[in-house]
Design a protein around this nucleic acid. Structure first.
Length: 893
RNA sequence: GGGCGGGUAGCUCAGUUGGGAGAGCAUCGGCCUUACAAGCCGAGGGUCACAGGUUCAAGCCCUGUUCCGCCUACCA
């Protein structure tokens, strides 16, 4: 390209929006996200944690999917056949609530519609809005294999659900029974234990007198929920409790009801709590239910599924709301003088994780999964390393939960979901569990078979996700190629809901773990944002951030802060900071492309300069670092290493150092050699950066001469493995460090002494080492350029310079002539400061060397290091004090 | 009640076998130096929560204290 065209080729600043749109469409049309069903390349698979169809992209999704995308794009560059399986979750309760709200706004409700019409309405809703989150993932740059997108209610996945249900039922691992479950009166359904959120609440402890029937007094019980007393069927005390040892009456009168209930003895009762007497309400408390089982008590259900008191609550209470009833019971007891006292009492109250209403423990007939046997396998698989959980700290949590796991209530009394494949015969009440609706009852031949109306817990179908999405129960090619998947990337909030259950189901039905690794990342908590930014209390919407700063800046920010096992607190200012980085890269490209207008290869290592050798060496190191960091999920390390390399090594030092050569000031040979290096660095750096910032790298890739097609097809630079072009060069690094130190020291003098940057300085460098002198001489132009020197003289140590500021570097002394600009007091101050620092360091170093224990016990290389630094410091100190004296004497003149 | 994580610069946080305390942002000073003022050059700033212990040596290992956050639980 001839001059002038470059300006039009690259805008002055990076504008993300059109670029992002253009390349995402390009990737999709080119089919670059597609996995091969079979391939001789190694398979690498990730299944996406399916977002709810009702969802909108929040910070948690953004982080989670950025990480997965980094991994997938990186593995593709390493040559793997990558499958990133996308999809969405039907999210039973959540979606039903959303659609019900919509119906309410339209003046109707699901009962009015009926089940079939309602489900149809949900599907319609899903058609219309269900792809919102998918489109948002695309804006994030997610390179999922969209042609394989799945939905938990797809026919294929539904078939997998039925198959699993039937098999578990036949194996005796699914059963149905009357138990205390968590009931949400708002959502009108049972919930699993996990779906209940406990919250510490300030409540009251009511002490109620239950009159003994022999008239000898009262038994005082304490409760936080007085309304449940209407359903009491016993009072329990601990058999060891001496307070009640001599009690003769075997019964008490249950106030307000006129019923008589027994006093029983049970070890469960904690003597130290309250009065040591426990009212037993089997229908509304899980512990009481168990006690009831042991003592064969009656069960009286006084609270209905709607949260209102049942007829069994008795006249005056039946039909009341549970909280109104509480007030009335308290008032009535008070009136009868049976309320002894009310204490303040903190206890935790369960809330529905969907609607936040207070959950009611209630007696109900539900379906359960017997999870203990499944959990055993899931524990073993992590113990023996078939699945590795990272960071390791979560392993313990996983075990803890698995060991204490309780049966899983899987039936939900809602309409949206997988209807339980169980039918009851109207004739003989036989229960038939089958994949498809039976035509006749196998027991009596009756034809009146009614299907169970309940649907399954949403998490039941998500538990099958890693294999149901790949075509199970058919023998699909995908399963062969990609199961077990390579890694699951997820937040710890769904470790139990989802990960643990996938482990159990995967092991049971696939006879193998669903994933070899689980990477548990930090959480940007709370979709309402409160915990995202404690101090400011505001939400940050990822889409707004993308709109404002571009996807790449946002992604890079997330990666840069994704340190293992720590929450991310995100602020806009931080994204803005990384947008600067994207722009820096962009501008570096503008510059580089001015000088590499055609494909530049190969590198002639005999003709390249020191900075060329140095940056190639640094590239080699950062390549290794990036690979190692991504391989071990240290995204922040990878991002940090790349940031430092691009900005502070490539831009700050290499490009500045290379300018003279590139501008042709040093003749044609160096110019051409440097162009080849510049090309190589840029080429490889784009590939390294691509997983993190896919859009800008793709854009620049197409501007770089000599590249073909998408950067997504480019191979990860393998460093020394692939040839001689990229290798670590320690000698170049040492020499470059020397030059950088010298230049920085001179700049420091300029800055500290307020010498205008435009003023060229004259400097003399003295060193006793010949190799250092020759190295400096050989790169004199470089130093002069970057430190803005007029003249540079290099000598062995000799006469001290007059009227000069001094600086020390490892290996010699720099004198910067201050003729004309001298400010002696300024220089004296600077030297004193420096001297102070050296004196302090020297003191601690000396102390170590005088310490006999240290000298005796520390390893040799540590002692050597300390000795060497002592010598250096000592020499520094001497030189500095001499110079200080000289400056002071000059100052006096 | 049980468990886990955290307390490092003004802010947000790195710190991988124990061996000279770091980054980004913010602050201060100087620069419109021909890729970039979304930039360049330089500077200041920390009793690594507190108290003990192990060690020649502790931000890092051990014990205790304290503050914050989270997970979990069948304390009526």
């Amino acid at each position: 390209m001839s001059d002038g065209t470059m300006e039009s080729a690259l805008e002055k600043g990076y504008e993300p929006h059109e670029v992002e749109k253009k390349w995402y469409e390009f990737w999709e049309t080119e089919g670059l996200f597609a996995a091969q069903e079979t391939s001789d390349r190694p398979g690498y698979a990730i299944v996406i944690p399916p977002p709810n169809v009702t969802g909108v992209l929040h910070m948690g999704h953004a982080l989670n999917n950025t990480m997965q995308d980094v991994l997938c794009r990186y593995r593709r560059s390493r040559g793997d056949n990558v499958l990133w399986m996308p999809g969405t979750d039907h999210a039973g309760i959540a979606t039903q609530n959303v659609v019900e709200k919509k119906l309410a706004a339209e003046g109707t409700n699901r009962e009015a519609l009926g089940r079939d019409k309602f489900i149809e309405a949900v599907w319609q809703w899903r058609e219309k809005y269900g792809s919102a989150i998918i489109n948002q993932l695309k804006r994030l740059g997610a390179s999922c294999d969209w042609n394989r997108e799945r939905f938990t209610m797809d026919e294929g996945l539904s078939r997998a659900v039925r198959k699993v249900f039937v098999e578990l039922y036949e194996a005796g691992l699914i059963y149905r029974g009357q138990y205390i479950i968590n009931w949400c009166p708002r959502c009108n359904t049972a919930l699993s234990d996990l779906e209940v959120e406990h919250e510490e609440t300030a409540g009251r402890l009511y002490h109620i007198r239950y009159p003994l029937i022999d008239g000898s007094g009262y038994l005082v019980v304490a409760t936080t929920r007085p309304e449940t007393m209407l359903g009491d069927t016993a009072v329990a005390v601990n058999p060891e409790d001496e307070r009640y040892g001599s009690m003769t009456a075997g019964q008490v009168e249950l106030p307000l009801t006129g019923r008589r209930i027994p006093v029983i003895r049970d070890n469960y009762v904690d003597m130290s709590f309250g009065t040591g007497a426990l009212k037993v309400t089997p229908a509304h408390d899980p512990n009481d239910f168990e006690i009831c089982g042991r003592h064969h008590l009656d069960i009286v259900r006084v609270i209905g599924n709607d949260g209102k008191m049942t007829d069994d609550a008795g006249p005056g209470y039946a039909g009341l709301d549970r909280y109104d009833c509480r007030r009335k019971v308290v008032a009535d007891l008070e009136a009868k003088g049976l309320l002894e006292k009310i204490d303040e009492h903190n206890h935790s109250v369960g809330h529905c994780y969907r609607c936040k209403d207070v959950v009611e423990p209630n007696l109900s007939k539900q379906w359960f999964v017997k999870v203990k046997p499944l959990a055993q396998e899931a524990i073993a698989a992590v113990e023996d390393g078939r699945t590795r959980i990272l960071p390791e700290t979560w392993t313990k949590t996983y075990f803890e939960w698995m060991y204490n796991i309780r049966d899983w209530c899987i039936s939900r009394q809602i309409w949206w979901g997988h209807q339980i494949p169980a039918w009851t015969c109207g004739g003989c009440e036989e229960v038939v569990v089958a994949m498809e609706a039976p035509v006749v009852c196998p027991a009596c031949g009756g034809k009146e078979l009614v299907q169970e109306t309940d649907v399954l817990d949403t998490w039941f179908s998500s538990a099958l996700w890693p294999f149901s999405t790949m075509g199970w129960p058919d023998e699909a090619a995908l399963l062969k190629t990609f199961y077990p998947t390579s890694v699951l990337v997820t937040g710890f909030d769904i470790l139990f809901f989802w990960v643990a259950r996938m482990m159990m189901m995967g092991l049971y039905f696939m006879k193998d773990v669903p994933f070899k690794e689980v990477y548990v990342h930090a959480l940007v908590r709370d979709e309402y944002g409160k915990k995202m930014s404690k101090s400011k209390g505001n939400v940050i919407d990822p889409l707004e951030v993308i709109e404002k700063y571009g996807t790449d800046a946002f992604r890079f920010t997330l990666a840069a802060f994704a340190a293992m096992g720590r929450d991310i607190k995100l602020s806009e200012a931080r994204v803005e900071g990384y947008r600067h980085f994207i722009n820096k890269l962009w501008n570096a490209a503008r510059f580089a492309l001015m000088h590499i207008q055609t494909h530049q290869e190969p590198i002639d290592r005999d003709r390249i300069s020191l900075p060329d050798r140095w940056i190639l060496s640094r590239l080699s190191r950062v390549t290794t670092q990036t690979a190692e960091a991504i391989d071990s999920y240290r995204f922040n390390d990878a991002a940090g290493a790349l940031y430092k390399f691009v900005w502070h090594e490539f831009c700050d030092w290499y490009l500045e150092a290379a300018k003279p050569a590139l501008n042709g000031k040093n003749g044609d040979g160096p110019q051409q050699a440097t162009r080849t290096v510049l090309w190589r660095i840029f080429h490889d750096t784009l590939i390294l950066l691509h997983p993190f910032i896919p859009f800008v790298t793709e854009e620049l890739w197409h501007k770089l001469p000599g590249t073909d097609g998408s950067i997504m097809k480019a191979a990860f630079p393998e460093g020394a493995d692939t040839g001689a072009e990229v290798v670590v060069d320690p000698e170049a690094e040492t020499q470059m460090t020397l030059l950088v130190d010298i230049i920085t020291a001179i700049r420091n003098i300029r800055g500290e002494m307020n010498i205008a940057p435009s003023l060229a300085l004259n400097a003399t460098i003295q060193s006793a080492h010949e190799d250092i002198r020759s190295s400096i001489t050989a790169n004199g132009d470089l130093i002069s350029n970057l430190a803005r020197l007029g003249t540079l003289t290099v000598n062995p140590p000799g006469e001290r310079q007059k009227s000069a500021a001094t600086a020390l570097f490892e290996g010699g002394t720099i004198y910067v002539s201050l003729a004309g600009v001298i400010d002696f007091s300024q220089e004296a101050k600077r030297l004193e400061k420096e001297l102070d620092k050296v004196a302090k360091d020297l003191e601690t170093t000396a102390k170590k060397l005088e310490n006999r224990d240290f000298m005796d016990k520390a390893p040799e290389h540590v002692i050597e290091k300390v000795r060497a630094s002592y010598d250096v410091l000592r020499e520094k100190q001497q030189k500095l004090s001499h110079n200080l004296e000289r400056i002071k004497s000059l100052q006096e003149n």
